[in-house]
């Protein structure tokens, strides 16, 4: 990755003050603590922000593509209207894996047939990323799939320096956010380069799959590799891997009248290609009737089918599915089994 030149630096104190100021105009979501969990959630004060990253259960895709979302409202007498909701939002402290996830989500929802519910939220959201200085967790493998650096998906990117952050500006929206809310000073210009040198040292020998670019081909050639059944036979078809994935975006749509049958709505909700009924049709046929087929489909979406479309691995290596899988199934291990690294 070519070095980015920061224009500004900001002290941590000024950054927190800026977020506080932004709270007047935006809902701010950041990494925060709730009971025994660390998660991305709406905060009321910048003091709630957790800076020391720990992997969260869900990715911040939930702010663009919520678990449940009403997309249509109607009445018994036939009035029908699209329901599109969005609030001015700041997503603060999003990490490179999830930023790459945003980029993929964006291409999926907006490249053709621009999804109005998704785009309304993107339009109103300022995304502020924070670069990762080190590998966050033993299950993370961002470095294997070329996702340890964010290639997009943010308006501003922060790089940790002594007493604060260097700021990379990616969009006009980001630059307007700085001028309205953040007190900054001019950067020397070499801050990001030194952050990246430090990061490279921390990541050490952890390098991308040797055959990263060739994964679609490898997966195509290995449709019937023994690994599918080895891993698939353990799969519980529980859908956990999909719920936690930053780049899974399948959904189901259902209609519901209110109990008085006078008003109704159409709701889309997260669905999971790993659960048994996902590919079943009305006549009863299920086109992916075993866990092995379903696992093959999901992993191929990440490294083959959709990788061709997005020109990058659609798995961003955040490791959430590995942590969530009780049966210990890992996309990384599957990729390695079919020769990603040999």
């Amino acid at each position: 990755m070519s070095a980015q030149t920061p224009e500004f630096v900001i002290t941590k104190k000024d950054l927190l003050q800026g977020l506080d100021k932004a709270l007047a105009d935006y809902q701010v979501a950041a990494l925060t603590k709730k009971d025994d969990r660390v998660l991305y959630d709406i905060i009321k004060s910048p003091t709630e922000v957790v800076f020391d990253y720990q992997p969260t259960v869900l990715s911040p895709k939930k702010f663009f593509f919520p678990q449940d979302e009403t997309i249509l409202e109607y009445t018994a007498d036939g009035k029908i209207s699209a329901k599109i909701e969005a609030k001015p939002t700041v997503l603060f402290g999003i990490r490179p894996c999830d930023l790459n996830g945003f980029k993929i989500l964006h291409e999926a929802f907006a490249d053709d047939h621009g999804d109005p519910n998704y785009l309304a939220k993107v339009e109103q959201t300022v995304v502020i990323g924070i670069d990762c200085e080190k590998i966050c967790d033993k299950d993370a493998f961002c470095f294997k799939v070329g996702s340890q650096d964010a290639t997009g998906g943010f308006d501003l990117m922060l790089y940790e320096i002594a007493d604060g952050y260097a700021i990379e500006i990616a969009t006009d929206k980001g630059s307007q956010f700085i001028s309205k809310y953040l007190t900054t000073s001019k950067a020397n210009g070499d801050e990001i380069t030194s952050c990246q040198a430090k990061k490279a040292a921390n990541f050490g020998q952890e390098k991308p799959f040797k055959n990263l670019a060739k994964l679609p081909e490898l997966f195509e050639q290995n449709k019937h590799h023994a690994v599918w059944d080895q891993e698939g036979s353990r799969c519980l078809s529980c859908g956990s891997c999909i719920m936690v994935c930053p780049t899974c975006y399948c959904f189901d749509v259902g209609d519901e009248w209110q109990l008085n049958l006078k008003k109704g709505e159409r709701v889309r909700k997260w669905d999971a290609c790993m659960v048994t009924p996902f590919a079943a049709v009305g006549s009863g046929e299920n086109f992916r009737h075993t866990a092995t087929y379903r696992l093959h489909h999901r992993i191929n979406r990440k490294f083959n089918f959709l990788m061709k479309k997005h020109n990058q691995a659609v798995c961003v290596g955040c490791g959430r599915c590995v942590r969530a899988c009780l049966a210990d199934i890992s996309p990384k291990r599957i990729a390695e089994a079919i020769g990603a690294d040999s």
Partner: peptide, 20 residues
């Protein structure tokens, strides 16, 4: 319309840390 998928789906949607 009773779900045919397991509780994990809803548990993860609620962003619970797995009890295991």
């Amino acid at each position: 319309d009773i779900p045919e998928y397991p509780v994990c789906v809803e548990c993860k949607r609620n962003e619970n840390v797995c009890v295991y």
